[in-house]
Computed example of a mutant assay.
Amino acid sequence: MAIFIGGYARTGTTLMQAILCSNPSTFPFTKESIYLYSLVYSYIEGRQLWNLHVDDYFDSLEDYVNFNKNIIAEYIYHIKDRWGWDKEIIQKSPLMTTIFPELSYLMNGIEPAKFIVMLRDPRDTIASMKSIYIRLNKKTTTEELLTEYKKRDEPIMKNKNSFDDHLIFINYEKLILENKKYMQKLRNFTNLSLNNDLSGWTGEEYNHDAYQSSLWGKPISRDSIGSYKKILDNSEVKYIESYKNCMNDFFCMNIFLAD
């Protein structure tokens, strides 16, 4: 089985990867699967540009699809050769969320696949992203970050019914505050034996990575919940909260933590 983890950056994708990889029957905790994302994105771009640039190189669209399925299969078989055919595949990247529908289609017939999308209170998410931009000495706005949050998950929300029971949304705050309940939810979804306590987990160190949080390698903690209060000013908080109903409707659930 392959389990793919996505969600907007700073929504807890690394925590989810650490939880799943704590089981010895899974792949170890590895760096983000940007290469897989690139493979699937190339497939998507080829379909979008089929008549303009791509059709000359394949006998048919079906030929093109099968060619790309074989590429994905080779990738899956390669990483299973590397980490073990008896291990469950765990792949994570926030970018992958945008290509989950196509990845699900390409994985059909290669390996049973399940998909986890992490959600988090937009106020904390935007605050955390703002901190990263500051560390990177880059400029952004609350408006841009909030738009990107929603845009990142649009493909999965538009196609979520096609996943049947192979897709689950996990709220970061509830995973922490209602740990036992949501860990059981994860066990039921993944069929993995998972411990509630992540004490002592360690992952591949990312040197000079501005995205690495202070909670890296530490047990599950509520320290970052409500951190927006220290980072965002009142006008930024009000702006995000003005989209509360819109965001909740979009995700079909309340993703704002009650104050």
Rank of each mutant, 00 (worst) to 15 (best):
S60K: 09
I5M: 07
E74M: 09
E178I: 11
L15V: 07
N245C: 07
N159M: 09
N254A: 01
L95P: 04
N108Y: 15
L20T: 03
Y182S: 01
G46V: 06
L198D: 00
L194Q: 11
A210H: 15
T97V: 04
P155K: 05
Y243G: 00
T97Y: 06
I19L: 11
I132S: 00
F100M: 02
K229H: 00
L106S: 01
K80Q: 14
T11C: 12
K218Q: 05
E111T: 13
G200S: 08
I3P: 02
A113W: 14
L61Q: 04
A2V: 11
N51I: 13
N191W: 10
D59E: 13
S25W: 04
L186W: 13
Y64D: 03
F58D: 01
D165L: 13
Y105L: 10
E32C: 02
I134N: 04
Y133T: 00
I134C: 07
A18W: 05
T141D: 03
L145R: 00
Q91H: 13
Y57A: 11
E102I: 06
G109Q: 06
I170P: 02
F27W: 15
T142P: 14
K92R: 09
D59V: 10
L177F: 08
M16E: 04
S25V: 15
G84K: 08
S214Y: 11
Q212C: 01
T141A: 06
M129H: 08
N66K: 14
K181P: 05
I126N: 01
G217E: 03
T142G: 15
N207G: 10
K130M: 11
F4Y: 10
Y149Q: 02
D81I: 13
T13Y: 09
R187F: 05
K114I: 10
S214I: 15
F27D: 04
T190V: 07
K160Y: 11
I240W: 02
S227W: 03
N70D: 07
Y43A: 09
D233Q: 06
K160V: 01
M1Q: 02
Y8R: 14
K218C: 01
L146H: 01
L52Q: 11
N254C: 03
N66Y: 13
G203Q: 02
S42D: 12
Y239C: 00
I90M: 03
F256T: 09
D233K: 10
D249G: 15
Y43Q: 02
T14A: 08
S193L: 13
P112D: 11
C252D: 14
G200M: 08
A2Q: 06
I240R: 00
K139W: 03
S93N: 08
I220A: 05
L15A: 06
V237Y: 05
V117D: 05
I99W: 13
E144K: 07
I71F: 10
N23G: 12
S25Q: 13
E111C: 13
V237S: 06
A9M: 15
D165W: 07
S22R: 09
E236T: 03
L15E: 03
I110A: 03
S235A: 09
F189D: 00
T30D: 09
A210K: 14
K185H: 12
L52M: 12
I3D: 03
N245M: 08
